[in-house]
């Protein structure tokens, strides 16, 4: 409670400082709108509806892309965990493709996939796949021997051990990857919209920025921030639902 109060104090202080600087005329107001003006613009834009549909389009893309990539990556990691040969064949290729900036794929992907949902699907899944796959593969391979041997001694087969022991044990680490994937999803969605889009927050921001509608640009930035907060909150909520035990356990260890 106290920390929440302190937090809002610090943010209010930041906004007040911004307001003062903007009014003082130290910076040209055309380039540096005051927070009050940004707030008013945001409200007006929400009223016009364009920013809302841009927000929804981007958020939906990021969410679907990150979710699809996560499921695909977990499935692939499970296969790699079950069959060593899959892991040996796939991992070096993963090492090679992972550092490839997804934005570099956009121009050429347009040729094959057009400007519609297929382009976003490909770019987002490519961008979000790696953090989840790498974390999942590493965590699935790192299950404690004792847990595996315990399960074997109670008659669990390889697949059953994967489902009942290795996957639940790996979930906390997998969520580190999913959390990264969610924020990367938003980045990739906005970047793709900026480069090739006709709608979404990325397009809105670029359009406002290039036509020097500065307060609108800042309003778009606030909307992007809200999208970031929201998608992270969503992952954390999902995490609390699935691995509440782990959150309690770390809290207990931190307290001890």
């Amino acid at each position: 409670m106290l920390s929440l109060l302190r937090g809002s104090l610090s943010i209010l202080g930041f906004l007040a400082l911004w307001e003062i600087v903007a009014r003082s005329g130290l910076v040209p107001t055309d380039y540096f709108p005051s927070p009050i003006l940004v707030g008013e613009t945001l409200v007006a834009e929400i009223g016009r509806g364009e920013i809302v549909s841009a927000f929804l389009a981007t958020f939906q893309r990021a969410l679907i892309g990150a979710a699809a990539a996560s499921l695909l990556a977990i499935a692939m990691a499970l296969l790699a965990a079950r069959y060593t040969i899959v892991r040996r064949a796939f991992d070096p290729i993963a090492e090679f493709l992972r550092p490839l900036p997804p934005a570099a794929l956009v121009p050429l992907a347009i040729f094959f996939l057009g400007l519609g949902w297929k382009l976003y699907g490909f770019i987002l899944v490519f961008a979000c796949f790696w953090p989840v796959y790498l974390n999942a593969a590493q965590a699935l391979a790192a299950t404690s021997r004792v847990q595996i041997e315990t399960a074997r001694s109670f008659g669990y087969g390889d697949w059953a051990i994967l489902a009942h022991v290795r996957l639940p044990a790996a979930l906390p680490t997998i969520f580190i990857g999913v959390r990264m994937a969610a924020s990367i999803g938003l980045i990739a969605a906005i970047a793709a919209e900026m480069i090739a889009g006709r709608d979404g927050l990325g397009f809105y921001l670029m359009d406002a920025g290039l036509s020097l509608r500065v307060p609108e640009t800042f309003a778009g930035l606030v909307a992007a921030m809200v999208a970031g907060l929201l998608i992270n909150a969503l992952v954390m909520f999902l995490r609390a639902l699935t691995i509440g035990w782990h959150i309690q356990l770390t809290r207990m260890e931190a307290g001890a």
């Binding site: 404690s144 004792v146 847990q147 041997e149 315990t150 074997r152 001694s153 109670f154 008659g155 022991v165 639940p168 044990a169 979930l171 691995i243 035990w245 782990h246 356990l249």
Partner: peptide
């Protein structure tokens, strides 16, 4: 030939042999 029915094992490392979730 593999862990049979009718046999159970108790490990020294109980804190890790129990599943924390």
């Amino acid at each position: 030939d593999g862990p049979p029915d009718g046999m159970a094992l108790i490990f020294q490392d109980y804190s890790r042999s129990l599943l924390p979730w």
